[in-house]
Nucleic acid binder design. Structure first.
Length: 672
DNA sequence: GGGCTGTACTG
DNA sequence: CAGTAC
DNA sequence: GCCC
């Protein structure tokens, strides 16, 4: 039917040929496609009766902007579809029966392992030798056998044979206005196999989105949506200052697409507030599931040394985390500062994927090398560089490998980090955190008996943001008298060490801003508390904490000599291992003068802190850090914003107001 | 096309 | 200086 | 990857 219409290229029929109805269910890989082109392609297909599906597991024909067999296998696998390559010329029906009956068998097992090994290769892009199978003949030019569709396109519908085909096939079909053989465009011909390890969350196959269905949605959306842009100019114009509706041609909505009115954008969206420190960001935002996917991608960026990627994802994540509605359309994403088509695309994928995951994010769980790197960077003192060195230069893949082959080469803190690997990864419950804070405070006051008023302790970090479990304990000790806080860290640590609370000191920071204050002229200060004191010492100790008390009850040990008992008791307790868990504790000491800055700087979440510094730089030309605010010019004059604050909470508030942030509760700084 | 937080310790 | 941590 |  396609041929006869070819003569009149301007009428409507041309537009809807060829007809893809005879093709098996089609899935379009979003990889390397903008949201716009993806939608365009999907629309093209739907218009021509294609059986488009958003559930890749039911697709038999997969179109994608990819050219390599290996890549194709990876794309499928990261979407939960495990495959093995088959020869193009092997009759696909034969093996299927065998497959269905045999569970997971010997020869196949090998294939699976091979496949997972490959992911590794894919990651670093370094070793790229063996593909899933040998390449067969390279595609011949489309003209050769083009006129009749490959029989397998139509018939393989039911089977477990999957064809991954270059997107170009579609373009050529549209141009020729007839179905062309997929064979010259075939990237990967595969058979679906059961996934090896994890039980694939077998989706109830719900989403065979019929063409009519989609068309309806598209129309519905077209009505709902503000006027779509003329199809000619495809670059989206983000005029943020005048908050125009997102100009994305929207073709699909969520599963239950009742007629929904668009969310009214929160003020920070309307005003295009790009700094996370100016927004309220709760610990559990409405789009947390999607954010968790993005966090995984960000983590992959970390592990692969893509710092800028990390930055970009952090920005996007922070914006989405601040968004107070459950997102229904990818166009909503486009309206958020720090989010553009990349993230909107990912949301589209997230929304339409059967399991609500992202292929890229899944690689973190699938890829052996990423998992190894992940394991290694979780060692305190081992960052991304060292982790990669361990893995790629030493070929270590487990912690035991490091211990066995590299122990003497490790730095002291890395050895400690390795020794308490599991314990440091345990979250610390809030009651335990406050208990630790109380003990530290007690010791602080014990080593400053003449302080007059007690030394105060602020629990900051994740605890202050409201997390039920914290990765470490962050404490700020302060006192109005600068003589009291001077050298306080050292004395507190020593005291805690002597009582057994601190087992190791990972690092001591004794940050003397002596030189800063030396070089700069004294500010005619209204309240210079201690004119003689030239340094503000914001000192900190990063330590390993363990409760020294434990139950060593050994009930059948009965002493015959009462007088030696206590002595015996002690030595025996020393010999017996303390089973209490080790924790990471940061003890920071701040002079009163800048305690507001310290508290603000340490309550954080990383993106909040970064954006805070960027904002302060941009708007005031100041330099913020947890030991104060300075001018960037003129040798760094101190800017005192917290003078007169009577409590550390009040001083933090003064700093925030002075910086132009207004007030934001700590629980609203969870930018991730 | 340039910028992306800012700082100190360790080895 | 590179690497790490906060 | 996104903003200015």
């Amino acid at each position: 039917m396609s041929e006869h219409t070819a003569s009149s290229p301007t009428n409507d029929e041309v537009d809807s040929s060829p007809d893809f109805l005879s093709c098996p269910p089609i899935f379009v890989l979003p990889t390397h496609l903008s949201l716009e082109s993806l939608h365009e392609i999907e629309e093209d297909l739907v218009k021509r009766n294609a059986r488009l599906t958003y559930d890749i597991s039911e697709a038999r024909l997969i179109l994608g902007k990819i050219g390599q067999e290996k890549r194709a296998a990876l794309e499928l696998r990261s979407r939960g579809v495990w495959t093995e390559p088959i020869s193009k010329y092997e009759p696909p029906t034969k093996r299927r029966r065998v497959e269905a009956q045999e569970p997971v068998k010997s020869a196949r097992q090998d294939d699976i392992i091979d496949l997972s090994t490959e992911t590794e290769d894919e990651e670093d892009g370094m070793r790229s030798r063996h593909g899933p199978s040998r390449h067969l003949n390279r595609p011949k030019p489309p003209s050769a056998s083009a006129s009749t569709p490959h029989p397998s396109i139509a018939s393989s519908d039911q089977s477990d044979v999957i064809s991954v085909v270059k997107l170009d096939w579609l373009n050529q079909c549209l141009q020729a206005q007839e179905l062309l053989s997929i064979e010259p465009y075939l990237v990967y011909l595969a058979r679906q196999i059961p996934s090896p390890a994890k039980p694939q969350p077998n989706q109830p196959t719900k989403t065979t989105t019929k063409s009519a269905d989609i068309l309806q949605r598209a129309k519905q959306d077209a009505v709902l949506q503000p006027p779509p842009p003329p199809p000619t100019h495809n670059h989206h114009s983000r005029t943020h200052t005048t908050h125009q509706p997102p100009p994305l041609p929207q073709t699909t909505t969520s599963e239950h697409d009742e007629v929904v009115s668009p969310h009214s954008p929160p003020p920070w969206v309307k005003n295009n507030i790009i700094y996370a420190c100016l927004r309220s960001t709760p610990l559990h935002p409405p789009n947390e599931d999607f954010i968790n996917q993005l966090l995984k991608i960000r983590h992959i960026r970390e592990l692969t040394l893509d710092e800028i990627g990390v930055r970009a994802y952090s920005t996007s994540i922070a914006a989405i985390a601040a968004y107070p509605h459950e997102i229904r359309r990818s166009s909503e994403i486009l309206s958020l500062p720090g989010c553009d088509t990349k993230i909107a695309n990912l949301f589209h994928e997230y929304q339409h994927s059967a399991n609500h995951t992202l292929a890229t994010a899944n690689e973190l769980d699938i890829s052996p090398s990423l998992q190894t790197l992940h394991t290694f960077t979780n060692i305190w003192g081992v960052g991304t560089k060292t982790a990669r060195d361990f893995h790629y230069n030493h070929n270590w893949t487990t912690l035991d490998d490091i211990i066995e082959h590299g122990w003497p080469t490790l730095s002291r803190v890395q050895q400690i980090g390795l020794k308490y690997y599991d314990e440091f990864l345990q979250g610390i419950p809030r009651p335990e955190t406050s208990h630790i804070a109380a003990i530290v405070t007690k010791h602080a006051n014990r080593v400053r008996p003449d302080a007059g008023t007690p030394i105060q302790c602020a629990i900051v970090g994740g605890y202050r943001r409201g997390k039920p479990l914290c990765g470490d304990v962050d404490l700020i000790l302060t006192h109005r008298d600068e003589h009291i806080t001077k050298n306080l860290v050292v004395d507190v640590v020593a005291s805690l060490e002597s009582e057994g609370w601190i087992t190791h000191t990972l690092v001591l920071h004794l940050m003397h801003s002596q030189r800063d204050q030396q070089t700069l002229p004294y500010r005619a200060s209204d309240d210079s508390t201690a004119p003689g004191k030239n340094f503000d010492t914001l000192d900190k100790a990063l330590v390993v904490w363990q409760d020294p008390h434990f139950d060593d009850s050994d009930h059948h040990h009965h002493h015959s000599h009462a007088d030696t008992d206590s002595e015996e008791e002690k030595t025996r307790q020393k010999r017996k291992r303390n089973p209490n868990i080790h924790h990471r504790v940061d003890i920071i000491v701040s002079p009163w003068r800048t305690v507001g800055c310290a508290v603000l700087g340490w309550t954080g979440d990383k993106t909040f802190e970064r954006d805070l510094r960027r904002y302060v730089k941009k708007t005031h030309g100041w330099k913020f850090d947890s030991s104060g605010v300075r001018e960037r010019t003129t040798g760094g004059q101190v800017v005192d914003l917290e003078a007169g604050g009577e409590t550390w909470e009040e001083r933090e508030r003064l700093v925030m107001q002075g910086l132009g942030l207004g007030w934001r509760d700590p629980e609203e700084r969870c930018t991730r």
